[in-house]
Simulated assay, not measured.
Amino acid sequence: MPSEAERIELEATRKAHRFGNWAATATRHSPWEDVLGIVAGTALTALGIAMLGSLGFLTGGMAGLAFVLHYLTGWNFGLVFFVLNLPFYALAIGRMGRAFTLKTALAVTLLSLMTAFSPAVIRFAAIEPVTGACLGGLLVGFGLLALFRHRASAGGVGVLAIFLQDRFGWRAGLTQLAVDLLVLVTAILAVPPRAVLLSVLGALVLNLFLAINHRTDRYLAR
């Protein structure tokens, strides 16, 4: 005779659809909770990116590469970010499942749109650079944490980081930090050295925040 917890889990499984199991249980978010979490996470991430961009700084991952290309070519950041993330959907759907891929695609699309239009709706009159680097990194960290906890990511390195954490137990924040530092080294091609150093500071704040707060043994929602 199955226990109550097993019965609830079996009922949730029966309700699963072809995009993955989004039924609400003690360890899973409902679809509406996922949508709200993804919208909130992308909004916080977009605000952090807007703050860093207003200072001429960068962040890591695909967003960092998109910043480099934006500064070098003048191309729209949101469009470049969206295109750079396309190849990572193959890894996401092959290794992380269709639900994760669909939610990540939603997050990337929303983030691309928000960052594309943010210059028209958000302007920062004055931000002290060190403070801006730390706050921008922290905002992006909060946004990514919200996405991770709803089994989504902002694409690119986030997909790889979650895969490695699920497969090998590597901390997602530390994986992102290693990749982000490599990306920021290339930023010397696009921005002054001082901006690169402050961008590194922002990346450290972002990824240390994730390393401390995103742990599968502390948060079980899927």
Rank of each mutant, 00 (worst) to 15 (best):
D180C: 10
G74E: 10
F142K: 11
M96R: 15
V179L: 15
R18A: 05
Y219V: 05
A66K: 08
L184T: 00
K15G: 06
S118V: 03
L72V: 01
R167V: 12
I8W: 02
V179F: 14
F88C: 02
R123N: 05
R123Y: 06
V157Y: 10
R18F: 07
T186W: 13
T45E: 02
R28E: 13
L139R: 05
G53N: 04
F163L: 15
R218A: 09
A12E: 08
G137E: 02
T45I: 06
I188Y: 14
I49E: 04
L44C: 15
V185I: 11
R28A: 14
I162N: 02
L47P: 02
L181R: 02
T101G: 12
A211C: 03
S153R: 00
L79N: 06
D180P: 05
D34S: 12
A178P: 00
A46Q: 01
K103Q: 13
I122Y: 11
A172W: 09
M51N: 00
L65D: 04
L110C: 11
L110A: 09
E4V: 07
L113V: 15
N207A: 11
F67S: 00
G155K: 04
L208N: 11
H70S: 14
V80T: 15
A5Q: 12
P192C: 14
F88M: 14
A16Q: 11
A161L: 01
L139I: 09
R123P: 03
A203F: 03
V205Q: 13
F142H: 11
L198I: 13
L181A: 06
L189D: 04
